[in-house]
Design a binder for these strands. Structure first.
Lengths: 336, 336
DNA sequence: CTGTTAGCGCCTTCAT
DNA sequence: ATGAAGGCGCTAACAG
């Protein structure tokens, strides 16, 4: 079944049929209806390939993610998919899970000539990669990461971190540890979350104990290990600030396994508001994940329509206080 | 940059260039090398659209999922993506999150003419939908669900359930509750996990208390609510068998909030081995998620190559004993 | 408002 | 082993 068939069956010419199917102007309502009816009746859909070849757009957008099994990315992609689907855009999924995949992706540009736009989810793009991307000649939007050069939607990591650390400080904690996540050559580095820590501590005139800052790669197990180190000190921190909820989950497990209680002995705060956070009563800073995905997808849709959307959208974050944080019991500052 | 350009630059004809790029026979090694070199040098890739139009395959496969923000589905898609990418196949992602989306999908078949194959992840496909799918005329494979008509890869739910319930029974539990998940009109219904419960109980000659079987939709909150009901009884169960880890997480929270302990007061077992399971020390039945995804993707690749892969693959499940299960303290059977 | 005509970039016979 | 020619299904100009 081709356009020609539909045109014949509807008793119109090729051009008219094409226009009718494409919502293009210049077709009477009656004619359009008839064409659409025939098409629907035969489950006909325009061949995107031929359409594209003849000068149209691909009606496809590439979504590039470092992970999919992590909640953040899955939720992001899920929300984008919805917007794209409504707009009649297909999504071509690409995963760049590690440095090698990343290299391959930018070297070979598998999405070349296959899409009208590309959205990078939680990915830092360096100058070299940007250069490569340019030869694709398509719109690029970043979601969950900031890029001076590309339109993007993200949260303010500085603000998110501030909310978390200020909360701890307000509760009276002074011996606060930070578990930084720093995925080498991978996803976006939320440096802001680290900066926020130092800034907040400084603002409250609390000195940062360098032993209390542990850098690790992302993951619950990593969080567990890191807090193991923290608990090993003769004077462990009274609170832990983790860059992400998953890391915080790991920290909580370690604390509990050590026979200590959260928050009585140690408070823990994360960032994200992962669905499991409410289940383990984790205090955290919520970021609107679906919201970011939708906003990014809308940006793409607008761009494709020729409108020009805001170049940057920053979504708000909120402190969600649950039961993993409380006033410190052992006021460490009293013993000084 | 088109094939013609590459051909010219390489000093060969169109046909030769095409054959060289497609690994087709009938080109001398030297010539092929030269063409490939020129192509690489100019970041040229064959236009899939034109290629397809000229009679080739789309080199695209549709992946249809009900969710992406749930770990199971994200992990599944992630693993499939890897296999497809290696095989040079692009993934077109479709989400059918609810009944309406599902209806739309099968009514409009947005993937029509866009892919060479379709893999349904965790989706039941009824006869009507199958009929619709037929008009796509492509290979269909099911992952994480059983389908008499389609090649599929899945686990044995009966076995998984048996492992979980037998574990509880072996520990001495008799007052065992089951939280069934039954997502209406949505993903695959793991009826086997329910059947396994009744079968195991019967095998051990334990009568099932109908109040102890609660049907709910999937989700941690639902699991929390369900166990709330369970705890409300004057004689609550000593163990809970949940159809999935997320549900079990909810159950654990409710139990803890009620001031009871896991496993001392109530044991909890789930199914899946969600990454968080190890963090909350949940005993569960592990299913190889990535393994299923890879197997399903390989099936598709084989099918596309004209080989015919096994029509059904069942992956093994394993009981992972952690600290959410223990012998019952209050031996309820003693009080009888 | 509608029918007609050129390609779009490529693969696939056919010759050579 | 290679070059030339036709056509895949469609859209974007054109005419009418």
């Amino acid at each position: 079944m081709t356009l020609a068939d539909v045109a014949r069956l509807a008793g119109v010419g090729l051009g008219t049929a094409s226009r009718a199917l494409n919502d293009a102007p210049g077709v009477s309502d009656a004619t359009r209806r008839r064409v659409l009816e025939v098409a629907a009746h035969h489950s006909y859909v325009v061949s995107p390939d031929a359409s594209r070849l003849a000068g149209g757009a691909t009606r496809r957008v590439a979504v590039v993610v470092p992970h999919l099994s992590r909640w953040f990315f899955g939720a992001m992609v899920e929300s984008m998919q919805g917007v794209f689907f409504e707009a009649g855009l297909d999504v071509l999924l690409y995963q760049v899970k590690d440095g090698e995949a990343r290299h391959t992706f930018f070297a070979e540009l598998p999405a070349l000539r296959k899409v009208d736009a590309l959205v990078a989810v939680g990915l830092d793009i360096d100058d070299l990669e940007r250069k490569r991307l340019e030869i694709m000649g398509v719109h690029v939007v970043s979601a969950g990461g900031q890029h001076a050069v590309y339109p993007h939607v993200c949260i303010d990591d500085l603000e998110a971190g501030r909310l978390a650390v200020d909360h701890l400080l307000a509760l009276g904690h002074r011996a606060i540890a930070m578990i930084e996540t720093d995925d080498p050559d991978q996803a976006v580095h939320p440096h802001g979350r680290s900066k926020a820590f130092y800034a907040a501590m400084t603002r409250h005139r609390v000195e940062v104990d360098p032993r209390f800052v542990i850098k690790t790669s992302w993951g619950a197990e990593q969080g567990a290990d890191a807090s193991g180190t923290l608990l090993g000190y003769t004077d462990p921190p009274t609170a832990i600030y983790a860059h992400s909820d998953e890391v915080a989950f790991g920290a909580i497990r370690t604390i509990r396994r050590a026979g200590l209680r959260v928050p009585e002995d140690i408070s823990v705060v994360g960032i994200d508001d992962h669905p499991v956070a409410s289940l383990v009563d984790l205090t955290t800073v919520r970021q609107p994940v679906a919201g970011q995905g939708e906003a990014a997808a809308r940006m793409v849709v607008d761009l494709l329509r020729g409108e020009d959307p805001p170049r940057a959208v920053t979504m708000p974050t909120t402190l969600i206080v649950r039961r993993s944080t409380a006033r410190p019991r052992r006021r460490r500052d009293l013993s000084r």
